[in-house]
């Protein structure tokens, strides 16, 4: 089985503080991994490292078999990584449509602008609007659209449903099903553990920068996760 993502002994630090403390995991090509854990567990730090947005780390990370560069977001993009960041992070001086166009890369794939607009019709309706004129839910759809436009091999979501209404969360999750079917590998961070585990093949739980659970999503019980979430057996 080819691995989309392989991580060994990853240590990340902010100054003296170790935000990740020996993280190892792997995600097979085309699978969806739920990444859960309490606030401050290190989930965002992990995604930032993958995206080249942080350079103070040690360990090995391979993306599709290629070693990840340290702190180089452009190289991360070339490896096929794309991020739907916490807080959307859309380009404020670009229109909705321009935010999608700028996401496009040379990689072939199913996600041209038409396909993205079919997935989220609102993107087409508001194509000339600026991100600040959109609701939070619409912004999240544009952020997902921008990431999809790259036809990524691995798509990362940080706090995918944070601040969204239940209806929007349902729409976003049903879009995830369509995205998965196209064969992209997904890593999803969400506070709603049962919802994210429902769409995942694999679950990883962080606790204070360490992996307290890493295994198939099927068969994992609420008790297992509850224990891992609060630090696991020790």
């Amino acid at each position: 089985m080819t691995m989309a993502l392989e991580v060994k002994d990853l240590i990340a630090s902010y100054g003296q503080f170790h935000a990740l403390n020996g993280v190892s995991m792997s995600v097979p090509q085309g699978e969806t991994m739920a990444l859960v854990g309490a606030n401050g567990a290190g989930k965002s730090t992990f995604l930032r490292i993958l995206c080249g947005l942080m350079d103070s780390w040690e360990g090995q990370i391979a993306v599709g078999g290629t070693e990840l560069a340290r702190g180089d977001p452009l190289k991360s993009s070339h490896l096929g990584l794309a991020l739907v960041p916490e807080g959307r992070m859309l380009f404020g001086s670009l229109t909705v449509r321009e935010n999608l166009l700028i996401g496009q890369t040379d990689r072939d794939g199913p996600w041209d602008i038409d396909a993205i607009e079919r997935l989220f019709p609102v993107i087409k309706e508001r194509r000339n609007a600026k991100p600040s004129e959109l609701s939070g839910g619409q912004q999240q759809m544009v952020a997902i659209g921008r990431a999809l436009a790259a036809n990524p091999r691995i798509l990362l979501f940080d706090e995918i449903s944070l601040g969204l209404s239940p209806a929007v969360v349902r729409e976003v999750y049903s879009a995830l099903a369509a995205i998965r079917n196209e064969g992209v590998t997904l890593v999803i961070v969400d506070q709603d553990i049962s919802r994210v585990c429902n769409v995942a093949d694999k679950v990883t739980c962080f606790f204070k920068g360490m992996v307290t659970f890493h295994g198939p999503a099927r068969g994992v019980t609420a008790d297992d996760l509850h224990e891992a979430y609060f630090g696991g057996r020790s």
């Binding site: 995206c51 080249g52 947005l53 180089d72 977001p73 452009l74 991360s76 993009s77 070339h78 990584l81 794309a82 991020l83 960041p85 992070m89 380009f91 404020g92 001086s93 670009l94 321009e98 166009l101 700028i102 996401g103 496009q104 890369t105 921008r146 990431a147 790259a150």
Partner: peptide
């Protein structure tokens, strides 16, 4: 223009621009 779009994106959020493939 496309270049102008990239310039504006780099001005807004340089890190995210690089992550979506803009040669910052």
């Amino acid at each position: 223009t496309r270049l102008g779009r990239q310039i504006r994106a780099v001005s807004d959020l340089p890190d995210i621009a690089a992550l979506v493939g803009v040669p910052v």
